Computed example of a mutant assay.
Amino acid sequence: MTAAAASSQASIQAIGVSKWYGKVTALQDVSLQLKPGVWGLLGPNGSGKTTFMRLCAGLSKPSLGQIRVCGDAPFANPEVLRRIGLCPEADALYDELTALEFVTAMAELSGYSRKDARDRAVKALTDFGLDKAMERKMGGYSRGMRQRAKLAQSVVHDPDVLLLDEPLTGTDPTSRHVILDQVRIRANAGAVVLFSTHVLVEVEALTEQVLLIARGQLVAQGKVHEIRDLLEEHPHHVRVDCDRPRDLAAAVLASPEGEGVLGISFPSSTEVELETRKPDETYSVIAKMIVEGGFTVRSLTSPDASLEALFHYLVERSGRMAGTGSDAASGSAKPYQAALSPGARDTKKKGARA
């Protein structure tokens, strides 16, 4: 691929990026590469999510390292900035304007004629369910409607990279449904969507691809289940809701294949929960015992296989040995392959320094 072709691709790349404000370090040695699709950007308050968004949007420069959007640095670069759409977390709309006036003006600032800008604004506002309210002043909008107006202006120029900083904050179910549908549409059309949020359930429904930042460092990147499999110090939990939970537990323990089970508990009178470091083997022996014993099973789940559980595991770990994302220091990390930083791996097995 030529340099020109590479630069035309929708992408976000960070190479050893650090950002500090005086003595406060907001980001430290973050390296990653994102290709088209939806990426959930997760992290506790103050972890550096908004700082990273601002760097990607060209609103500030890294103190160290490089940020590339669509192959080039976004700061003070109009050719790159026109390919970026930003929906900031801050609510700072012009209340005296109608949504149509506001979004039309934003399209004009992107270089479109008055007529084209208005046509694009109407379409963007309609896509976000504001077709019947676009002529109203935004000062009378609900929080959900204001969020949708912000999102409409972020996509009115069809950006290749869409940066959404907490777009679901304060939204009602109807607004969330509309927003998530539009995010999927943009990603399916080939855009890179970086979606920062605390609403883990919504991210889990939207994408498996996540980035987790804690204490200013990239702790993990990749698909949820792949990252979870690398967290060897946290045993997996398997919960079975059935008619005879104690009998099932006894059968699993008595089986030679059940040696990977570390512990058993009974959350309720109909449930048994097994703790294991060999989840694949444990799932197999449970299935075998269910068939052989004729158990009636209502559900078989893993309480810690959710994004919320992964989030808490990684944030907890970051307090002890936060990673730096330096495994992707070249900026060529595969975006669809789970990548724990050296500090977030099993130090005994990997030989990494904590």
Rank of each mutant, 00 (worst) to 15 (best):
A5H: 12
Q9R: 07
Q13I: 01
W20L: 11
K23M: 06
V24I: 12
L27W: 05
V30K: 03
Q33A: 11
Q33W: 08
L34N: 13
W39T: 03
L41V: 07
P44T: 15
N45Y: 07
G48Q: 10
L59I: 03
L64F: 10
G65D: 04
A73Q: 09
N77A: 06
L81G: 01
E89L: 13
E89G: 13
A90T: 03
L93M: 04
E96N: 14
L97F: 05
L100M: 13
A105T: 07
G111Y: 05
Y112E: 15
R114K: 09
K123L: 10
F128M: 00
D131F: 05
E135A: 14
E135M: 11
M138W: 06
M138C: 05
G139H: 03
Y141N: 00
M145N: 01
S154W: 06
V155K: 05
H157T: 14
H157G: 06
P159R: 00
D165V: 14
L168G: 01
T169C: 11
D172M: 05
D172K: 04
S175M: 02
V178L: 07
I185T: 14
A191V: 12
H198E: 07
V203F: 03
L206A: 08
E208R: 09
A214S: 13
R215W: 12
A220V: 11
G222P: 06
G222Y: 05
E226H: 05
D229T: 02
S255V: 10
P256R: 08
G258L: 05
G258S: 09
P267A: 00
P267H: 07
S269C: 11
S269L: 08
V272N: 01
V272I: 04
E273F: 09
E275M: 13
R277D: 15
T282G: 14
T282Q: 13
V285W: 03
G293F: 15
R298D: 15
R298V: 14
F311P: 00
H312N: 12
Y313N: 04
R320E: 12
S341C: 07
R345Q: 12
D346E: 14
K350H: 13
A352C: 06
R353M: 04
